[in-house]
């Protein structure tokens, strides 16, 4: 086996304080996205909302889900999954965003 480095081992222990900090960041982002939607930025609302949602997921993935402390294999996996989804959605729009 090649990836035997953390056999049965204890994973990285994240201190409670760090989770509280991440939680605060997530709440702050939520506040920003609600406020921004209230201002009315027109078409930019959705762009901003998705950008903030992506930032929030980055925090959740890296800290709550410990992706930061996992091997490169896991990171490659998740990249593959996201690229696949990106392909599915952009390729569907090859059809919808152009005159039919």
């Amino acid at each position: 086996m090649s990836e035997q480095t953390h056999e049965h081992g204890h994973g990285h222990v994240v201190p409670y304080g760090k989770y509280v900090f991440i939680w605060l960041a997530l709440i702050a982002f939520t506040g920003i996205t609600v406020t921004a939607a209230g201002i009315g930025l027109g078409n930019w609302t959705i762009v901003l909302a998705l950008a903030i949602a992506s930032a929030k997921s980055w925090f959740v993935l890296n800290y709550f889900m410990h992706l930061r402390y996992e091997d490169a294999v896991f990171k490659t996996f998740i990249a593959v999954a996201f690229i696949t989804f990106a392909i599915f959605i952009t390729f569907t729009f090859w059809d919808y965003s152009f005159t039919r």
Binding site: D95, S97, F98, R100
Partner: peptide, 11 residues
């Protein structure tokens, strides 16, 4: 199906 020409080309 009547997709856009772009989709036809790419696919």
């Amino acid at each position: 199906a009547g997709m856009s020409d772009t989709a036809m080309f790419v696919f």
